[in-house]
Simulated assay, not measured.
Amino acid sequence: MLSAGVSGFALGATLIIAIGAQNAFILRQGLLRQHVFVLCLVCALSDAALIALGVAGFGALIASNETAIRLVTWAGAVFLSVYGVIALSRAWRPQALRAAGEGGGPLWPALATCLSFTFLNPHVYLDTVVLLGGISAGFEGQARLAFALGAMAASFVWFFALGYGARLLQPVFARPAAWRVLDGLIAIVMFALAASLVL
């Protein structure tokens, strides 16, 4: 059972740690110290819910629904493109490049953006529900539960480490040039992800 939990944690970490829109957003919010706990919790709980669906056997259902996957793919591509333009505009305008205090911006827009990054990304369904759910089928009973809990734990560890660990980089981001580079990289990631979804 312990080995199943370790396997779930390792596979979950491998899938989550890849550079993506959600991680870039959490990194930026961590640097700004805006709603870090709530946003990290939302990301981790969302992953946990999707993993639970996959382990419960919903992976095959989602994988077979091409219309739903196509709709999410196009909605995700549009959303990522729009956010890429926003990041590019932040990088272009020096007055937008400043660190905010704890809880500086309103929570609801940040929460809506976070949920969009999570649920408008078809890869999240393929990774958590289909892939993790499919692999969990190789375990029985308590071992399958341990695998699922291990994968969920990886998500909690990663998002909170990223959100709160970003503060260690704050001396670097005291300079506007660093924010310009970060937002420029975020824009590139968003456009690349949107293109990969369309293609």
Score class of each variant (00 low, 15 high):
residue 16 I to R: 05
residue 16 I to M: 09
residue 17 I to E: 01
residue 17 I to M: 14
residue 18 A to G: 05
residue 18 A to I: 11
residue 18 A to T: 03
residue 19 I to F: 13
residue 20 G to H: 05
residue 21 A to L: 06
residue 21 A to I: 02
residue 22 Q to C: 11
residue 23 N to S: 06
residue 23 N to P: 00
residue 24 A to Y: 00
residue 24 A to P: 04
residue 25 F to C: 06
residue 25 F to R: 08
residue 26 I to M: 12
residue 27 L to Q: 00
residue 28 R to V: 01
residue 29 Q to D: 11
residue 29 Q to E: 14
residue 30 G to V: 03
residue 30 G to M: 13
residue 33 R to M: 02
residue 34 Q to M: 00
residue 34 Q to D: 11
residue 35 H to A: 05
residue 36 V to D: 05
residue 37 F to V: 07
residue 38 V to G: 04
residue 38 V to K: 12
residue 39 L to M: 09
residue 39 L to W: 07
residue 41 L to P: 02
residue 42 V to E: 10
residue 46 S to L: 05
residue 46 S to H: 08
residue 51 I to W: 05
residue 52 A to Q: 06
residue 52 A to G: 09
residue 52 A to I: 09
residue 55 V to L: 09
residue 55 V to H: 00
residue 57 G to T: 03
residue 58 F to L: 11
residue 58 F to G: 00
residue 58 F to S: 06
residue 61 L to F: 10
residue 64 S to N: 14
residue 64 S to Q: 15
residue 64 S to K: 13
residue 66 E to V: 01
residue 67 T to Q: 15
residue 67 T to I: 13
residue 69 I to T: 08
residue 70 R to Y: 01
residue 72 V to G: 07
residue 72 V to E: 06
residue 74 W to L: 08
residue 76 G to Y: 11
residue 77 A to I: 06
residue 78 V to S: 01
residue 83 Y to R: 10
residue 84 G to W: 15
residue 85 V to W: 14
residue 86 I to P: 00
residue 86 I to W: 12
residue 86 I to M: 07
residue 87 A to C: 12
residue 87 A to D: 14
residue 92 W to H: 01
residue 92 W to Y: 11
residue 92 W to D: 00
residue 93 R to H: 07
residue 93 R to K: 13
residue 94 P to C: 04
residue 96 A to M: 07
residue 96 A to K: 04
residue 98 R to K: 10
residue 100 A to W: 13
residue 100 A to I: 07
residue 104 G to M: 00
residue 105 G to D: 15
residue 106 P to M: 01
residue 107 L to N: 08
residue 108 W to C: 00
residue 108 W to D: 01
residue 109 P to M: 12
residue 109 P to Q: 15
residue 109 P to L: 09
residue 110 A to H: 09
residue 111 L to R: 08
residue 112 A to R: 13
residue 113 T to R: 06
residue 114 C to V: 03
residue 114 C to T: 11
residue 114 C to P: 02
residue 115 L to A: 10
residue 115 L to Y: 05
residue 115 L to P: 02
residue 118 T to Y: 11
residue 118 T to E: 04
residue 118 T to L: 15
residue 119 F to K: 09
residue 121 N to D: 15
residue 122 P to F: 13
residue 122 P to C: 14
residue 122 P to G: 14
residue 125 Y to C: 08
residue 126 L to Y: 07
residue 127 D to G: 04
residue 128 T to C: 08
residue 134 G to C: 07
residue 135 I to F: 09
residue 135 I to N: 04
residue 136 S to M: 04
residue 136 S to C: 03
residue 138 G to A: 10
residue 138 G to H: 13
residue 139 F to I: 02
residue 139 F to N: 01
residue 141 G to S: 14
residue 141 G to P: 05
residue 143 A to V: 10
residue 145 L to Y: 06
residue 145 L to C: 02
residue 146 A to Y: 14
residue 146 A to F: 08
residue 149 L to K: 10
